[in-house]
Design a protein around this nucleic acid. Structure first.
Lengths: 226, 226
DNA sequence: ATGCAATGTTGACAGCGATTATATCGGGTG
DNA sequence: CACCCGATATAATCGCTGTCAACATTGCAT
């Protein structure tokens, strides 16, 4: 009887199936996309019966929802620079840059979190809550921007936050879903950042800070390393 | 031997299968969504064998691509007010409003046309061309706006058009995919229009025209009539 | 008329999500 | 210690799907 930690458990009960399913699912999500992900394939690869996953997830969408929820945790890390930035206008810019960066490096998770696959959201309360949390972060920045006078008070806080969100969301999704309409170049990253700056600058009382901030382009390419 | 026009053909050959498949597919797309659409179900409902559709579409995605391509034709009609408007800034606003309106009334088509389902676009040349045609329309407006001096020359025409596109696209997709994060109200339409105006106004030398134009809200609700 | 390309049919295969009933484990209670 | 119960995994199965290969029918051009 092996007493090793069950990395390769020989026992009847796997013991860590839920987590292992999610880990493997993320991998397949990255390499094959949402549509190709199959519960059966996951179970097969882990070496467990094809119905075992159903002990941990009510159905396939429940697994996807769990992935998306976990994805939000990673997403919030991408937005950390935004929360640490005291200037509200720069904070919004950092939020946008983090948003785009996340979309680029976790494309399939992004589609899961922000796309139409898991709808209506009411069926996934945790996921719903995560979305709310995200928008609240933007609202906080906008409110701060109003108080400090760096943002133009074009509308109430909620509406303004929604607008900022829409701007950022548009840049990111357009980059993902229509990137090949323009060709997949470094230009795309650059264009995304330019678009972000243009729009956010339009919300500022003094746009010079936004335009003067040095570019945050990450070393290109992340290029599918094969 | 009935000589009636084959609305209900009794002959071996259907004669109009391709078009009928597409019509029925659109219907099912509206009521059931992309994921639920099944070639077999379509064939069954039309009263034809389950493999007959493959004489007209290489695979399921080919049918979806055809739908998306056809969808662009309808889409361009929604943008007609934009092309008829001589003032370039208002033209962009109309483009955005048409875009949002289309997304709301043809949600599933919208997801097909602008979402990640049919990717890479290289596999669907006509679809690809349609996307290009759309962006060219925006570019034309931007160029006109530069020449007439109503748009601020924040960047070159292509970049500026991309940015406008991103703004509009963000408003529409956020409305569709995160509408229930805020609740499905008339407020959503209103918010979309406000966001559009805010962003486009930021691109104008004189934003008063944009903000003074009367609201274009259509009678609410389209409400699932069921 | 005849032959060919386009169109539709039949039958089959593998893969999928999901359900039901059954087997195995492990921890807490007597 | 023995026992039982809940949590977990299994086996067998259903109905559905996309897709393929081989065959049947049609209409049009020659």
């Amino acid at each position: 009887m092996t007493m090793t930690i069950p990395t390769t458990p020989t026992s009847y009960h796997h013991g860590n199936l839920r987590q292992e399913l999610m880990n493997l699912a993320v991998k397949h999500l990255i390499s094959d996309g949402i549509g190709e992900l199959s519960l059966r394939a996951l179970a097969r690869e882990i070496g467990v019966s094809q119905t075992a996953p159903y002990r941990h997830f009510k159905d396939k969408n429940a697994l996807l929802a769990a992935l998306a929820t976990e994805g939000f945790s990673r997403f919030f890390e991408f937005c950390l620079p935004s929360e640490r930035e005291p200037r509200a206008d720069l904070s919004l810019l950092y939020f946008g840059l983090g948003y785009v960066q996340f979309a680029k490096t976790h494309t399939e998770l992004f589609h899961l979190m922000f796309g139409p696959v898991l709808q209506p959201r009411n069926d996934y309360p945790e996921l719903f809550a995560m979305g709310r949390e995200a928008i609240y972060k933007v609202r906080a920045s906008v409110e701060r921007g109003y108080k400090t006078g760096v943002l133009r008070e074009l509308d109430d806080v909620a509406s303004m936050a929604h607008t900022v969100w829409a701007a950022v969301h548009g840049v990111a999704t357009l980059m993902l879903d229509h990137g090949d309409t323009y060709g997949y170049h470094r230009d795309l990253d650059l264009q995304a950042e330019k678009s972000l700056r243009m729009m956010i600058a339009g919300f500022c009382t003094d746009p010079t800070e936004i335009s003067q901030l040095p570019t945050t382009l990450t070393p290109y390419p992340p290029e599918p390393t094969e």
